[in-house]
Amino acid sequence: MTGITLTVNGREHVVEVEDRTLLVHLLRDELRLTGAHVGCDTSQCGACTVHVDGKAVKSCTMLAVQADGAEILTIEGLANGRELHPMQAAFREHHGLQCGFCTPGMIMMAIDIARRHPNPDAATVRAELEGNLCRCTGYHNIVKAVVAGAERMGEPA
């Protein structure tokens, strides 16, 4: 067991974890932030995507101990009460989700895409979503949502 300190959604946590614990399991099992999901064991599906120090990463492909000292942002840290992050709002507006299981990872990746590609076109979004699998939507409305959400993120608040 190793003691680590990390900031999750603005709140500092000091926890003891087994060294082999994946970041996603720390978030889900210890911190009880269950928005990040585990959808595969080969780092392909992206349902576990969170931000570590401002960058989208797959939290199933990183040890919790590697996040010692890091700032983590999860899906739970985006909205302020009923006020949604523009990307969350865009997913709702454009019906970018059905069963919702891939959605937290999709939204976290979408925000990362929008930061790297302000006002992306549909082709860019499709290419950038390579590591996030969805079985329900056929991606059609996810792509629309990400394009619209990125546009809104670029507007002055």
């Binding site: 889900r28 932030l33 269950t34 928005g35 990040a36 999860t74 739970e76 019906h95 919702g100 939204i107």
Partner: peptide, 17 residues
Amino acid sequence: KRVEDSRLITGNGRYVD
């Protein structure tokens, strides 16, 4: 627009695991 989305887009979906 879907009613269920509010919980699912905020990480408040409740799945068995």
